[in-house]
Design a protein around this nucleic acid. Structure first.
Lengths: 360, 360
DNA sequence: GTGAAAGCGCTAACAC
DNA sequence: GTGTTAGCGCTTTCAC
């Protein structure tokens, strides 16, 4: 048909005077091949410039040795850190990794649907994105193993942290320092169709409220501000908070990204950190250490690599246990948080004991 | 052989009372199928729960509709921005994208070699990584189309900026503000085996030197400091510079990441920016705008999307022209750069005219 | 508009 | 150890 065909495994077999099976064994490093035969085959491969077809091998084998990872907002530092963790493991295990960057719900649904195509990928890691029942069912039907990071789904191995506990940790840190008026800045909750459905900010807010309550600190609804995830948006909200008649002495931002915005807002309005305002974030991205931001550390990279490791186990037919893997959280106390200024402290009741037991 | 086989296209064909060819046409949305036939086939597909095999289709078609992108240091903001740009285009064009994150030379060589396997990927985008002649030859032999970002190779479509010009731009900006003692902080040049071979920092340094010379400003060798790319390393170098008997009044950092380190070092030693020290970076990553860092803007996201667009053109058999696509650079003047303090200015010759024409 | 048949290039099971 | 062979599940001519 075609003028000059590609060199195939049978060409190599013919030229080496062996069968295709033997060539395949050489190619795949199977043990049972005589050294002499191997050398002969190898030299013919070289002479003929033979290059195996990845696709043909994959079809024959029945697996592409490829994994997909679906991540929202790839460019966010926390996301890319997780991605890097997963890639490192997948790579070491010999899997190609297809990255699906999701910026909108439609995209998420598109990817999730496409990945259940048979033989497309051996497994999928889903990061932070809640899946609906239909999507989960599709994966189950397609028998495409799934592992998640930062989100749970029934029957799916998940690598998560306790965001509620993290919210409490952050809040407790500020309370322990003596703060009583503590603001919260997090993600705005959008209507379902427009949103990717992240839950971490909401859960951290929940932790914040619980901890305030547990400490007997009255919650001021006005100190909770929600907006887009971008630092600039967080900066605006922080500016509002600082302009209040009775401004907070500390702000807990639901992510380091947003905390960066708070820091820059404080800078802008000449509010000293931590002198007049303490700030704590969440995640412990690289920028946090550089700017001396106190934060709740979560092992981002590890979350990616653990999910990958667990997916690989699944692909090897092994059991994954526990189903829900809980990664630890801890406070990292840096320069952005300190006891409130004396003048502010004067306003609070020094005799009331601060609830203990939650300190980092 | 196996107890219950997967549903294949011929099962669908049989159940629909048509040939496999017709089913294939329906699957691929070919025009020449009667509506009634199409509906029938579609309903059978649904009934049988048939899911096409991606691999089989790919082998038969001869292409995996997959592209690989090889990026160094994925987690760096500039890198991930480029990646996101490329992914968006590749995605829209219907390609899966395999991401290869390179952190060390051995990994780079491994990926580059693996990607020339036949039928593995339809094309490859290489970011920032210089390739040697053997690697380029391998791609040519394998007929795997290549496009590069931020690095050039003979015969390969490249999407780049003029880093030397960028270095001059940054330096000219500082000179125009009145600075004469201008420090430079960039990447240390490692021995070849240990290094990924990035050239941008070196080229920006070159631009810095050229511009100083063109402006008739004497270059002080002691003001040029090279180290690891990490902000902390840059911070250390900046601290050294600021501790000099005759410290610089401005620092040009070869990347925003390093500039962040400079900013935090200045903060640390109580050196006001831009009061006592002006700082300019390079890249214009998101953090730069947040921190008010003056910088040389380069269109990072665009560089990724353009390379992807050009690779796609190549894959469609189209010519790509010009071979070397030069993306524009421009100064973004923010709060971190300003004229030097009066006391410092006094030391320089006010009568000597500042070379003009290079201002942003 | 549709069916039949010839690959695509490999892996793996089995026989020797 | 090594050769033989039967798939893997599609796409794509080419007739009709």
């Amino acid at each position: 048909m075609r003028a000059s065909r590609q060199v195939t495994i049978s060409d190599v077999a013919a030229a080496s005077g062996v069968g295709v099976g033997t060539v395949s064994r050489v190619l795949n490093g199977a043990a049972n091949v005589r050294d002499l035969t191997r050398l002969k085959v190898l030299s013919v491969i070289d002479q003929l410039g033979y290059r195996p077809s990845h696709l043909a091998a994959a079809l024959s084998r029945g697996t592409a040795r490829t994994v997909a990872i679906v991540v929202p907002h790839l460019t966010r530092p926390a996301t890319v850190e997780r991605l890097a963790g997963a890639l490192a493991v997948l790579d070491a295990q010999g899997y190609d990794t297809v990255v699906c960057n999701v910026e909108a719900p439609a995209q998420r649904d598109h990817f999730l649907a496409a990945l259940t195509t048979r033989n497309r990928v051996d497994g999928v890691i889903v990061v932070s994105l809640p899946m609906n029942a239909a999507q989960l069912a599709a994966f189950r039907r397609a028998e495409v193993p799934l592992a998640t990071v930062d989100v749970s789904a029934p029957g799916v191995p998940a690598t998560v942290t306790d965001d509620v506990a993290g919210g409490r940790l952050a809040t407790a840190h500020l309370i322990a320092l003596g703060h009583r008026r503590i603001g919260f800045i997090g993600d705005k909750i959008l209507r379902k169709e427009a949103s990717l459905g992240f839950t971490s900010s909401r859960r951290r807010l929940h932790g914040y409220r619980r901890e305030l309550q547990a400490a007997g600190v009255g919650a001021d609804h006005d100190l909770v501000r929600l907006g887009p995830h971008e630092p600039h948006a967080a900066a605006e909200l922080a500016t509002e908070l600082l302009a209040l008649a009775d401004p907070p002495t500390a702000i807990f931002a639901a992510s380091d990204t947003q905390a960066m915005g708070v820091l820059s807002a404080a800078d802008q309005v000449g509010c000293a950190v931590p002198g007049k305002l303490s700030v704590i974030g969440f995640d412990d991205i690289e920028a946090a250490s550089l700017r001396g931001l106190s934060t709740v550390h979560q092992p981002l990279r590890l979350s990616g690599s653990e999910a990958a490791r667990r997916l690989c186990a699944l692909l090897h037919g092994q059991q994954v246990r526990p189903r829900r893997q809980l990664l630890p959280l801890r406070i990292v106390h840096r320069a952005s948080s300190a006891p409130p200024a004396a003048g502010t402290l004067a306003a609070i009741d020094r005799n009331k004991p601060i609830l203990a037991g939650k300190r980092p």
